[in-house]
Amino acid sequence: MTRRMQGPRSMLECWWSGRVLDRYVEQQPAIPLTPAERDRLERHLSVCERCATSATERRRVLAALDRLGDQHAPPPASLRRAHDLVRDLTDGDPA
């Protein structure tokens, strides 16, 4: 369970948390968090309700985008045409 943080130090941690949360919640960040950063963030999330909510919100949006990817799957006919072309190119090598 989270509880509210107060004071300037918590504001600084919230600011820092906001900057690194994306890297925390996504599976393949461009720059992964270091173990120390991850530990610091998780400690903050355990005591800051607002940042924990933000993390939950980010995860939820990413999960929804991931589900959109399922609908973004190519139609079987498109896949078949592309694979057929690869086979045609490699079988009947015109070069």
Binding site: G69, A73, P74, P75, A82, V86, R87, L89
Partner: peptide, 27 residues
């Protein structure tokens, strides 16, 4: 050459179609 091309390209066909769809907006 043909073997290498198939090996490189076949696994990427789905990704190519997905990205092309993202760029063009239609299948």
């Amino acid at each position: 050459r043909a073997e290498a091309f198939a090996r490189w390209v076949e696994p990427e066909v789905e990704v190519l179609l997905r990205v092309a769809h993202t760029l063009t907006g239609s299948w």
